[in-house]
Design a protein around this nucleic acid. Structure first.
Lengths: 321, 321
DNA sequence: CACGGCTCTCGACAAAAGTCAAACTGGACA
DNA sequence: TGTCCAGTTTGACTTTTGTCGAGAGCCGTG
């Protein structure tokens, strides 16, 4: 990890330019190189996270709607991505926002737990690089050899790479074929240690999955569409870190869940900051379930979803009174 | 604290430009304003800390010398500002570095204790703005009505202003004329509360003062040159947050110290991260005393001072063996 | 209602930064 | 030793950004 001479130069150029406010040609003459090289070094510095340019995400919390949602759902912070007509792709907007929010929440020395899914991977993919020292990114659930790029281990590793952090992968499959095997595996020292480490995380990043044929669990072969439909009838409302939860946000009592190797919900709740990001409007019920289960303290959603959540909360309190 | 419409625009422009990577003219057409206005908004955004551009200070820790110092003095981290011939003003360089380091160490929700002095004020003055929410900057010692701009309360307030944080000033003078009065004042609920709050700080920022006629304490009239000389004879080695310490880093047993209203050294040591910045080469002995007293976990110094510290440490261990 | 004083905005120009093909390095290898 | 290659570095060019003075709107005031 010793700094290579080339990197030295990048650091120096970045320092002179960004911290001292010199112009590129001044930096160039200080370092005895051409201005073009300086420009190149600076680009590298930005790309690798040697310099960090971050914009405050205040704008998205200062929304009245966001404040109301925080109150109504008892969340620590809510960010709402606008979904006007002239915004090309709301779901990308949400991911960009989520990436910014995430970077704002990460601190040096943190241990971060990440789950997986299209959303999480999209955030990882969009996220800018940062040079955080002493950060660990830990996988929250077992692996699934999916034909997609967003496998659990890939989500973890990509985020670790972006933050220049240590990636901690899970050495187990997400689902096993029998409950005994899952139990036995969970008792393995390596796995047990990893699972118990979840509660020591300072920050979690995940989304919530839908309980339908489009779910990752189905796409990746962990469950068949009919099994999924059956679970739904039994009360499945959402998927968190590979586990099925009911409308109350509790682990559903079913064979599938007993065969899963993943972080216990109690461990997740022990994480101080739990950032949940939901892109799809269709994930309304799953999100409600996750919130009911206290699985989220920080929330990033689109404007439509936010409105729906607020309407629902209002209707619920009205009914109660 | 509600966002004004103008600030809304600044936020939006900053977001589109920095987070989405649009060009200024694209931002301008999105927001239906001229490109010149966008440029102006972006400057404001940078100036007010809505966007944060920070460069990693790795370069200055990755120095071999820095590593050795960390080991030799048992410090958590050391940053060394270069002092080559072509660096115009080493002391400014140290302050710039210290400001960056400081911003890197601050986290949201932190409570920060700051002492005072030329160095601290210079850091505050040089420090770029940031939009940290939920940060408190607390004054570590009583006030001194000095004919300088770097009064204790001003150091505190300026840093608070830069971070967009809450400033917590001390409602007491630094030195009183009698010990009784100091004791009585320390017992006052307001003051007592403030003093006991020091230990709850997450981060401290201070320098160490010299024990000579140039000391702030003398310049500001807290002590006469001859009193200072007398204290020196009694073993005074440095000044920390307005208090005189001996070579071992302990509070010197003297009337002056008993008349001072300031954070107890034990409270200071209870702060997890203690950033000490020393600009002047002449403050070698005071710095040694501060380090001996465990008053510093993170250190920013110039190259010459670093070398001297290391030589001293080597000599000391040699003698011991 | 006309008048300064004020802020905000814009167009045009100047300055700075980004980019690219070509030249140049310093090994690795035949 | 020569040649090839991958990665830098550079000068020249283009694009983007910063700035400044002029003008437009907008108060409170005489």
């Amino acid at each position: 990890m010793a700094i290579r001479p080339a990197e030295q130069l990048i650091h120096k150029a970045a320092w002179l330019y960004y911290a001292h406010g010199l112009r590129q040609d001044q930096v160039a003459s200080q370092l005895n190189i051409s201005r073009a090289s300086v420009a190149m070094y600076l680009r590298k510095a930005r790309e690798t996270g040697i310099v960090n340019i971050s914009t405050s995400t205040q704008l998205f919390t200062d929304d009245v709607l966001a404040r109301k949602l925080e109150d109504a759902l008892h969340l620590d912070a809510v960010w709402i991505a606008p979904e006007n007509d002239h915004i090309a792709d709301p779901s990308t907007e949400i991911a960009v926002l989520a990436a910014s929010v995430f970077l704002e929440l990460v601190k040096k020395g943190d241990r971060i737990g990440v789950a997986w899914g299209r959303t999480v991977y999209m955030i990882a993919d969009i996220m800018s690089y940062a040079d955080l020292q002493d950060v660990t990114v830990a996988q929250l659930c077992g692996n699934l050899g999916a034909p997609y790029s967003y496998r659990p281990d890939q989500c973890t590793m990509e985020i670790a790479r972006r933050l220049n952090a240590k990636g901690l992968n899970f050495y187990a499959p997400l689902v096993l074929s029998t409950e005994e095997l899952a139990r036995a595996l969970r008792a393995e020292p390596v796995i047990r240690e990893q699972l118990s480490g979840v509660g020591e995380c300072d920050l979690a990043l995940y989304s919530v999955g839908a309980v339908d044929a489009d779910s990752h669990l189905v796409k990746c072969g962990a469950l068949t569409p009919s099994e999924m439909a059956e679970l739904r009838k039994q009360g499945a409302a959402g998927v968190i870190a590979g586990q099925i939860i009911d409308a109350g946000g509790k682990v559903l009592d079913c064979s599938y869940n007993r065969r899963v190797i993943s972080a216990e919900l109690a461990s997740l709740r022990a994480i101080a900051r739990r950032l949940m990001v939901v892109q799809e409007d269709s994930k309304f019920e799953p999100l409600l379930a996750a919130i009911a289960g206290g699985l989220c303290t920080h929330l990033v959603v689109g404007a439509r979803m936010a409105q729906r959540l607020l309407d629902h909360a209002a209707a619920t309190t009205e009914k109660a009174s």
